[in-house]
Design a protein around this nucleic acid. Sequence first.
DNA 1: GCGTGGAACGAGCGT
DNA 2: CGTTCCACGC
Length: 640
Amino acid sequence: MKILDDLNPPQREAVEYLGGPLLVLAGAGSGKTRVLTYRIVYLISAAKVNPWNILAVTFTNKAAGEMKERVEKLMGYRSRNMWIGTFHSRCVRMLRKECEFLGYPSNFTIYDADDQLSLMKKTLKQMNVSHKQYPPKSILEKISGAKTILLTPQEYASHTKSYFEEMVAKIYKTYQESLKSCNAFDFDDLISKTVELFKENPKILKKYANRFKHVLVDEYQDTNYAQYVLLVQLASIHKNLCVVGDEDQSIYSWRGAEIRNILEFEQDFPDAKVIKLEQNYRSTKRILDAATSVVKNNINRKGKILWTENKRGGKIYLFHKKDEREEARSTIDLIQHEICQTGKLNLRDFCVLYRTNAQSRALEEAFRRADIPYTIVGGIKFYERKEIKDLLAYLKVVVNPADDVSMRRIVNVPPRGIGETTTKNFDTLMEDFGISLYEAMSRVDETSLPNSKKDKIKKFIKLLNGYRKLKKKVDAYELLSKIENDIGYLNILEKERTIEAESRIENVRELLASVKNFTVEADDPSVEAYIAEVTLLTDIDRWDEKKDVVTLMTAHNAKGLEFPVVFITGLEEGLFPHASSLYPPSELEEERRLFYVGLTRAKRKVYLSYADRRSRFSGRFQFPSRFIMEIPTNLLKSLD
DNA sequence: GCGTGGAACGAGCGT
DNA sequence: CGTTCCACGC
């Protein structure tokens, strides 16, 4: 095969290996995406594996889309039927098809963090639990942790170690019942319920495990226990599990990722083959040396020796300023200077990284003042914005009338005289008959509300019923634009005439444009398909690297990306490494890996910066990050 | 039912 | 320092 000539010996071995479980330890910039893509191409064209029998799991939808594109470019339509996606999106697909075995109808809704919070607050109220004593967020964190290690409410209840946890166990049970009655899954359920489905229905598992002759996993170091079990299940028949990862880039332990999955792959799969990819094709020698020196300080790692044939490159620049505003200004000055000096670089070649989203504020202001186009990935995410959630909630209710969380959201948006007091009138009806708010409101005549209120509710229900009928005839775009038009969402915003409303209008327009785009491009343009996809989209998935703007994002979001020039800002003790991760050592090591991820995003140049004072610390003086000292001084050049 | 202002609280990374 | 929540007044 000709494409194999593009690969170095270990890459080639990873592509061609067909002897069962395979662990590819792929250092930063060592061409792991290339290996995964070529392996898929190799499986299909040389090993004659039907694309239908291949499952590839990536970390983001964006990575999945890119991989699909690259495979298609290399071999055209023959790759059409393979399965590429994130854990969550593949699980949704399987759940849609099989959820009757879990007692769920297939029009279920997926609740994001915001929806979960609403449901949890409602659940606590229902249980008469004080949300002061049991903060909804911490409860949800505990529940998420339980789901990540596959503990059911019953199992969790038998593991409790404190009175607080006993309460959590009770809330967990009720919360699951609430989800069920809304016909909804939360993010963690998507994985854990799929595992449960397979555990309880061996026949269904057999169907999928038989189908997936080859399972490929990207970013294996960031999988959690539930995902690990899922992989074991899916690969249980053919045992062709190929995982690619880098323990030095494991940065998600705080949400349940287990570095052990990669460190102990060989124990889990005793006949596993291990291949190391150690040649870096991305960065200059100096950047690579700096990154290596930093990560060497970690004890808990397998250890790879990354090397590169790339040129030596310039030194790593370091500067410090008196506060975050001057840091931001200098960052911009340096970007402008780089562009003028080289004459070859564009805005899109620059990326500014930081540890916390809050840091984007000072940068954003400075970029706006300097009139330099930029984009922020993350922070208040697009699909979490009120105006977006409001409109999508209409679609969700139309698809799944049992979705009380979305129903409550839209019931008085825009204001139609159905406030909280009116909605409360349906509580008994809902409880007595075990029905949803939608259904209760359809039976408004059974309440003692005044006729004026009854009419308002009847009108609203009639509107929704109309959409449910219409849904069968039109695509997602037609339905959403009709809804927007009917409720006059944009009109109302336009009347506000504020800067804030202006940006909301822009967001709504972008939403409508993206739905339009979806209906044109997707195989299935239905409302159901759209809602399922959109709930799992993240900010990084929407990020367009071709747009000529500077990218601002957290170091976490930068994983898997690369830029010619990278700025890592806010390198202060307590910020990066973050104050809450200074202890235990395992957490500090994760901070160090995060810094390592940041450094290794850069192809040509790295700028590091810190501020003496930052308003976040109420203006207290901060020491420079220890990570700066871990870079050998001969690789650093101070700009101060 | 809805909007406004002041108090209280919290300040990490995100599928 | 900035956001969220709640009480109060319209």
